[in-house]
Amino acid sequence: MSNPSQVRNAFHQFEVGFEIIADLITPGTRVLDLGCGSGSLLEILRDKKDVEGCGVELDQEKVIRCVERGIRVMSLDLDQGLVGFPDLSYEYVVLSRTLQQLTNPERVVREMLRVGSKSIIAFPNYGHWRVGLVHLISGRTPTSHTYPDPWYNSPDIHRITINDFKDFVRTIGGRIEKEIYIKNNVRCSNLFLPNMRADWGCFQISTK
C-alpha cells in the first residue's frame, strides 16, 4: 500500500511537471498528448495557450472525463503505435508520466518523433541517490515520492534513470533540445549531478 505522504508529493510533482510542459509549448500550436489521463494538461494548454489539442488514452473512465472537459480524445493503445497519425501532423507530442508504463517505449518514442516536430517527455528518475541507498541497504525494490507503489502493485514496468534516457535518445538518433529537472518539487534548469539528485526529468527532443 502506498504511503499517503508519498502519494501527495507525487501529485504535487505532477502539477509542477504540467507547468514545465506548458511553458515549453508555443501558444496557438497543435499538441498531441499521449496517455493524457483525464485531460488536465490539455485543459491547461487550451485555456492558457490556445492550443489545438488532442489526447490519446486507453482507460475508458479517463476518456469520459476528457469528453466532459471538452477535450478531443482518442481511445488507443500506445504500444500499438501511432499508425493513424500523419508525419509531422503536430508541433508537439507530449508523453508525461507514461514512458515507464509502456511495453515498447522505443516504438512509441520513435513514433512521437515522426508525428511531431518536437516531443516532450517527462518521467520519474529511478537513479536518485535515495533510491539506490534504500536498495543497497534493504535489498528490496524501493518505493519513493516518484515511485510510491510497491513493485507488485505498480503500473510502472520500467525503472528509468536520467542517464538511461539520455543514452536512449542518442541510440534512436534523437537530439535533446532542452532538459529540465524537478528536485524537491522545484524546477531546476541547471542541476549538478541530475541523475543522482533529480526526482523527475523533463526533456524536449527532436530528430537530428
Rank of each mutant, 00 (worst) to 15 (best):
P86A: 06
G127L: 01
L193T: 08
F14Q: 15
P148K: 00
S119Q: 06
N104Q: 08
F85I: 14
V31L: 02
E177N: 06
C202E: 05
D47C: 00
G70L: 03
D50T: 01
C54E: 15
E177S: 02
E57R: 00
E177Q: 03
F165H: 12
W151V: 15
M1I: 08
P150D: 07
S119T: 14
T161G: 14
I205L: 09
L113V: 04
M196H: 10
W200R: 00
I176H: 07
R175V: 10
E91H: 12
G84H: 04
D79S: 09
D50A: 00
I44D: 14
R30Q: 09
L82F: 10
Y152R: 01
S117W: 05
V131E: 11
L32V: 09
E68N: 08
H158V: 09
V109P: 11
V94H: 06
E19C: 01
I44N: 08
V134D: 13
R72F: 08
P142G: 03
G17M: 01
T161I: 05
I176M: 08
I180L: 14
F192N: 11
Q101D: 15
Y126P: 04
R8Y: 09
D50K: 00
G139K: 07
I25H: 04
W151P: 06
I71M: 05
D50E: 10
L34I: 08
P194H: 09
L32R: 04
G55K: 00
L191C: 10
G35M: 03
V73Y: 05
K208G: 04
K118N: 14
V108W: 07
L191T: 14
D50W: 00
H135N: 13
A198F: 02
N185L: 11
I205E: 13
F165M: 09
V63Q: 08
K48M: 02
T29R: 02
T26L: 05
N104H: 13
E111W: 03
P124C: 02
R97H: 15
S40H: 11
R72N: 14
I44W: 05
E57G: 00
F165V: 13
R65W: 11
A198G: 06
F123T: 10
P4D: 10
L88A: 11
Y181F: 15
R110G: 04
V16W: 06
I205W: 12
L88T: 12
I20V: 15
I44H: 07
E15D: 15
I137S: 01
T26R: 05
I44M: 12
